[in-house]
Design a protein around this nucleic acid. Structure first.
Lengths: 209, 209
DNA sequence: AGCGTAAGTAAGCAACGGATTACAAGCTAG
DNA sequence: CTAGCTTGTAATCCGTTGCTTACTTACGCT
């Protein structure tokens, strides 16, 4: 056969994973749970980086240092992996932050290019805006969660709507910054952005009528 | 061969196009310019609906009622079509609106589900957030254009940054509304949304310090 | 040790999708 | 009319991609 495109050598074929996660970079041998986790981690990174469509299961598996067939054994489908990444990241963030701090926290987590311990769910959300399947449903749910929390901050009659607008702003900032890389927002000082946004958002939420 | 998936019959194989555009729904015979235009129109619709990745050149050609090879003759590549759609739609909108009205106009054009004479560029922008190539470049440029116009509205020292934030809000609203379909924003009254957003945006742009 | 099951792997399948090619048909200049 | 360009078409190439399958290898148990 002629098609010998590079996919066999697995690049870094050092036994069992790139030492990618789980602190101890020791060899992981035949550990189903760890393999699953590695796949989830890798998927989170790639979905956040490239979005759902442009991430292939082969890429995920390679980054996780795992055979791609295992992805299907443990998750069933690419969509299922996406759902789990989103659900995990998104819900955890909301649940673990009190509403008053949620906006600032989410904003900061988006403004800092921390890479490592960054919450991938928002970036993944943003970069996967094309998709339609079950995929869209889970994205809606995460948004719902955020908005619910934000709505508690307003006494206005249409608190829900205002919360949606704040959420929209949050996502929009991520979009312009990370996805489009537009300056000056992309490299603006986080504190300054937080200050401006929080000010306007607060006035939006508090103002009645 | 077994692969006889339905792609040959072209569905509506009525001679030359679906009467899709160009007012006069008469048969268009061997008109290169019109064919090009039809492709551009169809592409705009589909990119806005599904984003770059999930739109195939075959779909574009089918909707335009044109052979798909022509797309490559007239544009060279799928990416080039996207660029032209974005450039056309985006730049026209900005150029034809004075800055004071730009925010409201863009907002309304996003809030109304007019379908027909709607500007596709923003929706296409939003739904194509995964892509990376030349694709990303043109999206950046359109954003640049909007932000430049918006920045003229502020006297603050960091007018550019504030303009970016307003742009981000605009896009975020489109994202939450059209792409995620999140309620109550998705079916909220346009006037109400405009009122809330304009108020907050104005205060953000005007406030100094 | 040996056996059964879970974990891991390589190879491949079928479908898709972007791009190309070889060809047919129409318009126009000479 | 016809030569030669342009416009349109069908068919196909070829790499990619989600997913499956048939198989091997390691681990835990008795």
């Amino acid at each position: 056969m002629v098609t010998d495109h590079v996919n066999a050598p697995t690049e870094c074929s050092c036994v069992y994973g790139v030492g990618f996660m789980t602190s101890e970079r020791q060899v992981r041998k035949r550990d189903a749970a760890a393999t699953r986790e590695a796949l989830l981690q890798a998927a989170g990174t790639l979905f956040a980086e490239r979005g759902f469509d442009r991430t292939t299961v082969r890429d995920i598996a390679k980054l996780a240092g795992v055979n791609q067939a295992l992805l299907f054994r443990y998750f069933g489908s690419k969509e299922a992996v996406f759902e789990e990444v989103m659900a995990k990241g998104g819900f955890e963030q909301v649940a673990s932050t009190e509403p008053e701090r949620l906006l600032e926290t989410a904003l900061r987590s988006m403004l800092t290019r921390d890479d490592r311990n960054r919450d991938h769910s928002i970036a993944a959300y943003l970069r996967s805006s094309g998709s339609t399947g079950t995929n869209g449903e889970i994205r809606r749910q995460v948004g719902e969660e955020y908005a619910r929390a934000l709505a508690t901050l307003s006494d206005a009659e249409d608190a829900d709507l205002r919360a949606d607008l704040v959420l929209a702003w949050l996502l929009g900032i991520g979009l312009v910054r990370d996805v489009s890389g537009k300056e000056p927002l992309a490299s603006a000082d986080a504190d300054r952005v937080v200050e401006l946004v929080l000010g306007a958002a607060r006035s939006l939420l508090e103002r009645t009528g």
